[in-house]
Simulated scan of single mutants.
Amino acid sequence: MTQEPVVLTQAADGVQTITLNRPDKLNALNFALTEGLVAALKAADADEAVRAVIVTGAGRGFCAGADTREFVVLTPDNQELVDRRAALTTELQGLVKHMSKPVIAAVNGYAMGGGSGLAISCDLALASESARFGYPEVKHGIVAAIVMAGLVEHVGRKAAFELVATGRTVDATEALKLGLVNRVVPDDELLAEAEELALALAAHPQNAMQATKKIFHQVAELPFSEGLKLGQQLNAQMRAFRQKEQVA
């Protein structure tokens, strides 16, 4: 019996859809799925035909976070394996920022721990009405360590600490208020909305879209005055963008 791949990809009209495909495990992130996601995102970014990316989950959940069944081997006795897993998780959580293409999370159902971190690491996030977000690690005697930086960046210190310290789950409406997602849509319209948004982004002149994403993430990590100077530099380069599009 042939086993289905843990990551599915589908491309149409410049949009690459990447689907986490462990529905029976609520798309929990084991080594194989995490490695597959990293590879699929990198491949989409390298593909000149791809201009926007959607990440979603198969079945009734976006991603339940780390696959706890692997914890039995992730022990101090296997430090090399522990380090490799931590590095892989870190790479996945930070990868979207370094991609040139815009990435949209279409969050269906539960997005917990690393799954929530993956969703908010995307440039844009749409949530179905049934979506649920949370960082329950503390309840299991562990720490939401790698995903914490992204959470603090998106919702601020007070809200972020409450989420990681209580481990409580928030619904889609509260996630929107907190700034975890851009909008909430009916469950049966989630993918259509994500595709419509991705197509709109893909339709923009590519140089401008990619430069917008690059400078956005750079400015977000700079003091205001330095961000302003960076914007001034890019402003001068934009004239070349228009010329290239006109020639094309």
Score class of each variant (00 low, 15 high):
54 I>R: 00
180 L>F: 07
113 G>E: 05
141 G>H: 06
61 G>R: 01
77 D>V: 11
88 L>D: 07
82 V>Q: 02
91 E>N: 09
172 A>C: 10
169 T>V: 15
145 A>S: 15
169 T>W: 06
134 G>M: 01
105 A>T: 03
101 K>L: 10
126 L>D: 03
64 A>D: 07
71 F>L: 15
86 A>L: 15
129 E>Q: 14
103 V>E: 01
158 K>I: 14
119 A>W: 00
149 A>H: 08
85 R>A: 11
183 R>W: 11
141 G>D: 06
55 V>C: 05
104 I>W: 00
174 E>A: 12
63 C>F: 02
80 E>V: 15
175 A>D: 04
71 F>A: 15
95 L>N: 03
105 A>V: 03
98 H>M: 13
64 A>Q: 04
89 T>G: 08
81 L>G: 08
146 I>D: 07
102 P>D: 05
61 G>L: 01
129 E>W: 03
184 V>L: 07
57 G>D: 04
62 F>D: 02
153 E>D: 13
143 V>T: 14
68 T>I: 13
109 G>W: 00
108 N>S: 13
91 E>I: 06
134 G>A: 10
155 V>P: 02
98 H>E: 14
57 G>N: 04
92 L>G: 02
132 R>K: 12
90 T>H: 09
63 C>K: 00
68 T>S: 13
51 R>L: 11
114 G>A: 15
119 A>F: 03
70 E>D: 14
55 V>L: 08
121 S>C: 12
99 M>V: 08
156 G>T: 07
135 Y>K: 05
125 A>C: 13
152 V>Y: 07
142 I>H: 10
177 K>N: 14
102 P>H: 04
118 L>W: 00
